[in-house]
Computed example of a mutant assay.
Amino acid sequence: MGTWNNFCRELEKAGAFLDRPESPLDEIDRAEGLRYLTRLLRVGLDLTLEFADPHHPALVSAQEAHFGDGGNTADCVYLHAVIDGRSSYRLRGTRGEAPLMEIGIYDGKIGLDPVSKRIDAVTEAGLVVDEHGEVDVRIGPGFADNAGPNVLHSDATTRYLFIRQYAHDWRSTTPATLSLELLDPATATPPPLTLAVVEDALDRSARFVHDAAVAWAAVVDNTRREPANVLTPVPDGIDMTVPTGHRYAFGHFDLAEDEALVIDFRPAEVPYWGLAINNYWFEVPDYEGTSGQVNNLTAQPDAGSTVRVVISSRDPGVPNWIDTFGHRVGLMVFRWFRTPLPVPEIRTRVVPVASLAASAAGI
């Protein structure tokens, strides 16, 4: 069948991405790269076929342990939906317990659309929650500017709803339970599936696999051009997809099996900071565990309020250890959220793992 053959040819182009000179050659990175392409395909099919009708919207998970498109953190629960900015929607349900939350609408999604700029957003600071813990948010083009705090103003370019919920420990935090409905439904039930819809979805999802991989790899490759084992603050105001009030420092580690990266900084009191590693494909290596990241509630500072984080392939027996999960090289992301304060000074040095283990043992 021509449609399926075209789909497979587009996927073959996406697979060639793994053979770029910049792509890593280690077996674990190659294996994760192949798996990453399958995960991108799942996201692409969700957004172009399974949940793609903005007139019968579905709010679904955007990133989890077993699928996603990159740039995520295990401290965040992500939800998304395809919408039409010319229509009006109602988002409602329980607020949940996440300390930080942002509901944003965009003119596209990275990898799927030419641009991805935030059109409007509301965070936990402006979101009104009733006495029962419920939220009711309206999204659309026809609401007055004084319609209230829980209103997001869309325009004809708006096509994507993205919700982020950040918590320090999801094992003891309840996420929001939300539903999305169209306020001006054209039909009560979705129309019958057509060949044209499927053909377009297969074409767009296959191209998404390639384009999303290229977009996120560009971030990683740019970071890897800088010196290894250093975290560098990202300048403010360079990307409208960044959540409100968020700052970052990026870097990459490059460590031998017997080496450890020691990271020292003294953070101010802020709503959230977190330090995590990702693989080359910008995926979280330990999504459901606690060994791949630390944050301002899980970290153990010293008596002088300095936090020391250690990244290594072997557990040196010290607090705030981040496991590399078999990766010799990987991405580091420091998140510094909901504060006007600049990213703190971050000092790094590479030491033998044995020296840390000996120190921890009191030798």
Rank of each mutant, 00 (worst) to 15 (best):
Y36F: 15
D69C: 14
E22W: 08
D29V: 08
F51K: 09
T189F: 14
D239S: 07
G317Q: 03
A201I: 09
T306V: 15
R207I: 07
P285W: 03
A31D: 13
R138E: 12
P301V: 02
R347L: 13
V151D: 02
R225D: 10
T158I: 03
T241A: 15
L341T: 07
S291E: 14
G330V: 02
P185F: 08
R20N: 07
P141M: 04
V137D: 01
E226C: 06
T348K: 06
G71E: 04
I238D: 10
S87H: 13
D169S: 11
D254C: 08
D221V: 13
A81F: 00
F7D: 01
E131L: 14
A74D: 08
F208N: 06
T73L: 14
A98W: 02
L231A: 06
N295A: 01
R338H: 09
I119S: 09
V309P: 02
V135A: 01
A188I: 09
T73M: 14
G70F: 00
K117N: 15
T244V: 10
V122M: 12
A217F: 11
D211W: 11
I119C: 10
I83K: 00
Y248S: 09
P227R: 00
F325W: 03
Q293E: 11
A186V: 14
L152W: 00
N146P: 05
R42N: 10
L356A: 09
P190I: 03
I139K: 00
F143G: 10
W170S: 04
P316Y: 02
V333R: 11
P267A: 05
G44K: 03
P57K: 00
H168A: 11
N72Y: 12
P352F: 07
W170P: 04
T173I: 05
A176Y: 01
I139W: 00
E345G: 11
T174F: 03
N320H: 09
P175W: 05
S205V: 12
R92Q: 14
R86C: 13
D130S: 05
T223D: 08
V353D: 01
F143Q: 07
R266L: 12
I119E: 11
N320Q: 09
P342H: 06
A228I: 07
R159Q: 08
P233N: 05
R225M: 14
F51S: 06
V353H: 02
A144M: 09
A98E: 06
N150E: 05
H80Y: 08
N320K: 07
A361C: 07
R338Q: 13
P175R: 09
T189E: 15
T244I: 07
E226R: 15
D75S: 10
D221N: 13
I263S: 01
I83T: 01
D221P: 01
R349Q: 12
